[in-house]
């Protein structure tokens, strides 16, 4: 069984946020109002986190795109009282909206703040409704949601390769963010396949994982020449 993972090269990322918008259009993510945004209720399954270091005239501004890191030991699933969030056999952390009771334990447990609570029912202008993606549900008020690695694309890819009678290849299944990344800073594929592009990239001395010390074993691996590198050895 493949183990899906993502590699994000921070040395190539320009912080343009194309991934953010691609994700929102793909996954029917409602936009916030200014008032909701002020309260920190904007939902963004992948978020660009700015990291400002140093002072004028030598400031260093970096961006860190943060999807759900799809941990192998996800802290969020351990606190879910209703099995609404769980780790599936392919290593993806699933989120089942119809089970979720909205207790928000998981949003608190996630050290990467990758989980979002729907404080209100999703709002769209009537005119926007036709462009909602039929492959992804509209989440109701009161449930927690997060990045799924565009899991619906995996379902479709599996279906396609099965119909064509062949094995699933890395390029068959690509999340929306990876597909659109202008700088080509994101890679996606099977971490268990020694020949895949992602596995090759994780061997780089630039590779590291976010908050490695927590033991969450994320499947999103970052690359950088900055001082964070070197934390990931596999």
């Amino acid at each position: 069984m493949p183990k899906w993972g993502m590699v994000i090269d921070l040395d190539k990322c320009t912080g343009c946020q194309a991934c953010v918008v691609a994700c929102k259009t793909e996954n029917n993510i409602p936009f916030s109002t200014p008032e909701q945004a002020e309260m920190g209720r904007t939902i963004s399954w992948i978020e660009i986190i700015p990291i400002m270091e140093g002072e004028y005239p030598r400031p260093k501004l970096r961006y860190l795109p943060r999807p759900c890191l799809q941990c192998d030991h996800p802290p969020c699933i351990k606190v879910c009282p209703v099995y609404a969030t769980y780790r599936n056999p392919e290593g993806l952390v699933g989120q089942v909206y119809s089970r979720c009771i909205g207790c928000r334990y998981c949003t608190a447990a996630c050290p990467y703040t990758a989980k979002y609570f729907n404080w209100s029912a999703p709002t769209w202008a009537k005119e926007f409704e036709p462009c909602l993606n039929p492959d992804v549900s509209k989440r109701p008020k009161g449930v927690v949601e997060k990045c799924t690695f565009c899991h619906h694309r995996l379902q479709k890819a599996k279906e396609k390769v099965k119909a064509e009678g062949r094995e699933l290849k890395d390029e068959d299944y690509v999340p929306a963010c990876v597909q659109t990344c202008p700088a080509g800073a994101m890679y996606f594929g099977d971490l268990d396949n020694p020949n895949s592009k992602v596995t090759q990239q994780t061997k780089s001395p630039r590779a590291f994982r976010l908050l490695e010390e927590l033991g969450t074993e994320p499947k999103v691996i970052y690359l950088t020449e900055g001082e964070w590198h070197g934390a990931y050895r596999k």
Binding site: A18, A176, Q179, P182, G184
Partner: peptide, 26 residues
């Protein structure tokens, strides 16, 4: 209905990629 915009992989300028503004075309 138009559900999603992606980059055209054959296009020599963007090679299948698209920026945030292009993505928001919907």
């Amino acid at each position: 209905n138009v559900i999603k915009l992606e980059g055209n992989p054959l296009h020599p300028i963007n090679n299948g990629r698209l920026c945030q503004v292009g993505q928001a075309g919907l």
